[in-house]
């Protein structure tokens, strides 16, 4: 049974058809990449999966259970964890405090018990902060634990965000551009981290990213979206070379000469070589 099943999901915003009958299957332990030009509907698809938008039609199923109309926080309880394109952290507190907040569902006392100052909450708070420290250590972030989130650079925050979403105990990780703001080396290291997380925690991962080398290296399967529709889906290398995909990124070729090694621009950062580690 697939972990995540997106079944003919469409969504309209006024006159704009943001998604049109998008199908997506994610199997256990898979890493699935979603690529596509800006405005293709990738984040909208994420918002439909995690519950920020309700699709106009179609269904989203998590482990066979229909979650199309389930509120966001209940999906988190089921094991859907997501990060945001613009860093999704509580900015005015420390990294450690964010980790504690993210363990909301793992905190084993009632909020009212905590308010009344029951002694048991003190011990549980200690356990929560220790667990948070453990997760930060795992992501090599121990040295920023007491820093205010607003004071940290973007690339670090992207890692803090993954640490925070790990703290929610997810089964399925949905990462919205985890590699943005990272250079080639950092993106490579991020790829290693993702592979390690899958191995150590048995996670299934869906990621949106413009870093095509990163996506093609770690993904088992890649979807390419354009104008709210699935343009191509398949093994990373096949999708990357798919003529429709190349056209979506580069527009209609002037000359029919198709380069053996297609060049795909990532975001607005300029052309990206498909070679791993090449300058972005």
């Amino acid at each position: 049974m697939s972990v995540l099943e997106v079944d003919k999901v469409s969504i309209r915003f006024g006159g704009v058809q943001a998604l049109r009958e998008v199908d997506l299957r994610v199997g256990e332990w898979e890493i699935v990449g979603i690529i596509g030009p800006n405005g293709a509907g990738k984040t909208t698809l994420f918002n439909c999966i995690t519950g920020f938008y309700e699709p106009t039609s179609g269904a989203v199923r998590f482990r066979g259970r229909d979650i199309t109309a389930m509120p966001v926080h209940r999906r988190t309880a089921l094991g859907l964890g997501r990060t945001f394109q613009n860093v999704g952290l509580v900015k005015n507190t420390t990294v450690a405090a964010n980790l504690a907040t993210a363990q909301h569902l793992q905190t084993e006392y009632d909020a009212w018990t905590g308010f009344l100052g029951s002694p048991a909450t003190f011990a549980e708070e200690r356990r929560i902060s220790e667990r948070g420290a453990l997760i930060l250590d795992l992501m090599d972030l121990s040295d920023v634990a007491d820093e205010r989130v607003a004071d940290l650079p973007y690339g670090v925050l992207k890692r803090v965000e993954i640490a925070a979403v790990l703290a929610t105990d997810p089964d399925l990780l949905l990462l919205d551009e985890p590699g943005s703001g990272m250079g080639p080396e950092e993106a490579h290291a991020l790829g290693d981290t993702l592979l390690r997380l899958r191995k150590e925690f048995g996670l299934t991962i869906v990621m949106i990213d413009h870093h095509v080398p990163l996506v093609t290296r770690v993904s088992d399967y890649v979807y390419c979206l354009n104008f709210g529709e699935v343009l191509a889906a398949g093994r990373p290398d096949d999708v990357r070379r798919h003529p429709e995909v190349v056209r979506a990124y580069l527009g209609e070729p002037d000359q029919p000469a198709e380069p053996a090694e297609p060049v795909i621009p990532g975001g607005t950062a300029g052309p990206l070589s498909t070679q791993e580690g090449a300058p972005a």
């Binding site: 509580v90 907040t101 909301h104």
Partner: peptide, 27 residues
């Protein structure tokens, strides 16, 4: 005690960013 426990943290998160708060599993 409110601010040092679950409830207060949830309020701080939803005050600043309700979307992030709900993604953290906060109702």
């Amino acid at each position: 005690r409110l601010t040092r426990t679950k409830g207060g943290r949830a309020m701080a998160a939803l005050r600043e960013n309700p979307r992030v708060a709900s993604a953290y599993g906060i109702n």
